[in-house]
Design a protein around this nucleic acid. Structure first.
Lengths: 99, 99
DNA sequence: TAAAAGTACTTTGAATTACAAAGTTAATCA
DNA sequence: TGATTAACTTTGTAATTCAAAGTACTTTTA
C-alpha cells in the first residue's frame, strides 16, 4: 500500500491538471482554447494550472500565428509523460486492489 | 472529457484519503493503528484526514476495548462506497483513454 | 511507585493551493 | 468606433495541508 501511494504525484492530484495531462498524452499538441472547452474552464483557471505544470517542466508551450490570430499550444515533455505514466501506474494499482 | 472529469470527487483528490478509502473498500473494518502503519502517516495527519471523511459521511467509526486497550476502527459507509466507486470509475475512464 | 510508553486524538500556526472576478494587451472584425 | 477574440495576469479571499506540539487516559516497566 505504501508503495502504491508513493507512486502518486502531488502535481497531478488536481482534476484540472489530470485532465490537461490526459489530453496531452493522447494528442501531441493541444491549443489553449481547445483545452479550455474540453475541460470547461475559465481562462484564468486554465492558465494557472498550465503555469504550474510548466514550472514543473511537465509541459512545454508553442506560440504561433494561424491566419492572423495567435495560437498557443501545449505538449507534454518527455519528463512530463514519464511522471504522468508513473502516476497512472499508481492509480491502476489502486484500481486493481479494489475487488 | 468533461464527463470523465466531473466524476472525480474533490474529497478523494488527496492521496492519503485515497489510501484510506482504498483500505476500507477491501476490508470492512480497519483500525487506527493499522491505517497509520499501512499508509505511513503521523497520528495527526491520519486523524485529520479521517475527520474530513467522517464529516462527508463517507466513513463511520467504532470504538471498543480489546483486552485493556482502546481500539478505534473505521469502515466505509454505503454513501462512501458509492462516492468512491464513482471516483474510481472516473479514474478508470481516464486510464482507458491513455491509449 | 515513578517514569515511560501506548492509543488516539486536538490544537496551533504557517505555508501552499485554489478559485472567482476583474483587469490587461494587442490584434481583428463589423 | 466599438465589440470581439485570444491568452493571459493580478488581486484578494478561502480552503487545504502539514508538521509539531499538546492532551488525556491507561498500561507497562524499572
Amino acid at each position: 500500500m505504501k508503495k502504491i501511494i508513493s507512486k502518486l504525484n502531488k502535481a497531478f492530484d488536481n482534476k484540472v491538471r489530470l485532465g490537461i495531462m490526459s489530453m496531452l498524452m493522447v494528442n501531441e499538441w493541444v491549443d489553449f482554447k481547445t483545452l479550455k472547452e474540453m475541460l470547461d474552464l475559465t481562462d484564468g483557471r486554465l492558465a494557472s494550472h498550465i503555469k504550474s505544470l510548466e514550472e514543473n517542466k511537465f509541459i512545454q508551450v508553442k506560440k504561433e500565428f494561424v491566419g492572423r490570430k495567435p495560437l498557443t499550444s501545449y505538449s507534454a515533455t518527455v519528463e512530463g509523460k514519464k511522471a504522468f505514466k508513473d502516476h497512472l501506474d499508481g492509480l491502476e494499482a489502486l484500481l486493481n486492489i479494489q475487488h
